[in-house]
Design a binder for these strands. Structure first.
Lengths: 204, 204, 204, 204
DNA sequence: AATGAATGAGAGTTCATTCAT
DNA sequence: CATGAATGAACTCTCATTCAT
């Protein structure tokens, strides 16, 4: 799937898939720890379990690694989110359920989402657009769920709510140093859901 | 003020202040365009109007420039936000007014906020903590305003709302490519205020 | 024939011969286009129609390819020149005829001769000597023809004339960008023959 | 003069000139010994007496070094040849004198000319054209001298003679392993002049 | 106080060669 | 015999930082 975007000089497709998975696993950890720019290609190779020469058989440039990492993360996020959306029966599955599922997902993939969040901007132009499109797919999925549950709401409003929820989900990860000090995931979700549905006026 | 954090070999305090302002002005633009890592110290020197040698009379490392930039931005943000808060009379100035003022501020300082947003993580540990504290001051100010207007709300809830508002303000800048395509600033603020106060249930 | 100089791990002699011919054909084109140093072994393998692994069954090092190419070219040049010389009957075949035949040969093998000309120096010492000997054989053949036609001339003079003719033949190829703009092959040969025989004094 | 072609980040023009001269001196020797491709930039820096970092303050790429070397050689060659031509009084200075001067020049600059001869092709396209133009200037100078001495000769013939002389001069250097074994410079020149003027027919 | 030439560690990338299958 | 994945030494080039002037 990624092979369409990033060419490799290795012919064996299955092997490419396998090696790239190893690579992504290694790179995510490194990027999370030190950021993309401070991670060297040699470190990536080592963390992936192969030599620098082998690394470059599977990518063309260091930025390709970043792209593969970002792409893979959104692939996971969208995949799992799609399951939630598809399982939802319009009119029956509540907005609340979907939002809760999304927040749980963001909790599961915290590390990955932080990388995504902080490093996408380092991608070369074209690759960045591609990834931002995938991000947008994510937001669109949220919009769909929202419009099922709020049939009368104007699309502009739906869009803003979707963006809010999207960012609040990510916020749980990238502002963890403040949020996760004071709240459990469930508490955080409860608050956000309550705010979403009723605004500040209500408080329990 | 910054001189406390970043030593300079120049004695003349006023001069240090002046040169650093030039430096920050130049650096913000560059960081916005190409990011911290892809900006060289030579470019910063040039954009600041002095030589590389002179640049290093006023800082110790490249990261000092980033620190000065981040610090200066929060200085401005907090300064202006403080004015809003101080002008507000508890019980009279409404939550809505304060939030609107904050969103306008985020619109004014868009470029700067994006830099802040994307590059803080590149700061060395200690400097990062220092800047994150300033960020937290900002959030605390929002919390204060909120607790004035929502006297009965529990502090945890206040904190989450403050974080939400904080991030939604920044979102106007860093998700501009999607938001500013569909909404004027006023429309965006109207929606956010309405959502904040009443939740999704209401719509016009 | 080449197998004496460059060992191969393949036993089947005929196969070695065949594969090496494919290899030389591919390599000449590449060397002509981008030079020896900028051509990779992978490219040579591809142009030859087999894998990099197979390539290395028929040679030991990249320089072996260059050697085989150079050797093969001189083999052709000398072979064809020998036919001319052998066909010449001392005293009957004129100097002019032989020189004309040589220039035509240089025109036919232009591409190959340019490669020879530009890349021989990249050969390792021993291989270079071997090739330069073959080059010298070529010059010696010219000397023989010349001494038949100029029986009274001292050998030193013969040698210089042979070198001149040798280089003028190659010049038609490697200075083509200037010569072939102004002259057809026949015009060029006519001029050179006239100059050779009579010097500058005469002009038509 | 070269500064127009190859930008340097050093501002002091005189210094650039000086350092580049050191660089060229070092590089010529290395290129002569091992060729352009087998010489590393670190070796060039070392031979020039400065660090790798400093080297790159005066050039952009390794190929720039080659260009500067080639340019400088032709600068010298053309400069010195111009003196000969300018000193010649049309009608008085004989063809012979000019050709002799040229051969002596080629003897003096043997090493440099061999480098030129073998490495020009490694230059990037544009730089190559520029250097070939300078080479052509050299040939044109020879043509001028020739046309003064051979007023009745057709231009095509003049051009070929100039090319012959040009290449025969270089030949003294790049075929030294055979020519300089058998001839002193003066003997070589005597033969060439005699052949040029009278052709093969005459011999002393 | 200001300048800019000098430095060299270190980064990304290539590619000839090997060897298990 | 043929293949192509794996290797790592070696290369070019960058850039933060220093220091003599």
């Amino acid at each position: 799937m990624e092979s369409k975007q990033v060419p490799s000089s290795i012919k064996n497709r299955a092997l490419v898939e396998k090696r790239r998975e190893e690579m992504i696993r290694g790179a995510v950890t490194l990027f999370r720890e030190k950021g993309f720019h401070k991670t060297t290609t040699r470190e990536i190779a080592k963390a992936s379990g192969f030599s620098i020469g082998t690394l470059y058989e599977y990518i063309r440039t260091k930025e390709d690694v970043l792209f593969l990492v970002c792409d893979s993360i959104y692939e996971q996020v969208n995949e799992r989110m799609k399951q939630v959306v598809d399982a939802s029966i319009p009119g029956e599955t509540s907005l609340e359920e979907a939002v809760r599922a999304y927040f749980h997902l963001m909790d599961d993939l915290q590390e990955e989402v932080i990388v995504l969040y902080q490093e996408v901007k380092a991608l070369p132009k074209e690759a960045k657009s591609y990834i931002l499109e995938k991000e947008q797919e994510m937001v669109v999925m949220l919009e769909e769920v929202l419009s099922h549950s709020l049939p009368g709401a104007p699309p502009g409003r739906i869009s803003i709510i979707a963006n809010n929820v999207f960012v609040e989900g990510q916020m749980w990860g990238f502002r963890r140093w403040i949020l996760q000090r004071s709240f459990s995931l469930e508490e955080y979700i409860d608050h956000q859901v309550s705010l979403l549905l009723e605004g500040v006026s209500t408080h329990r």
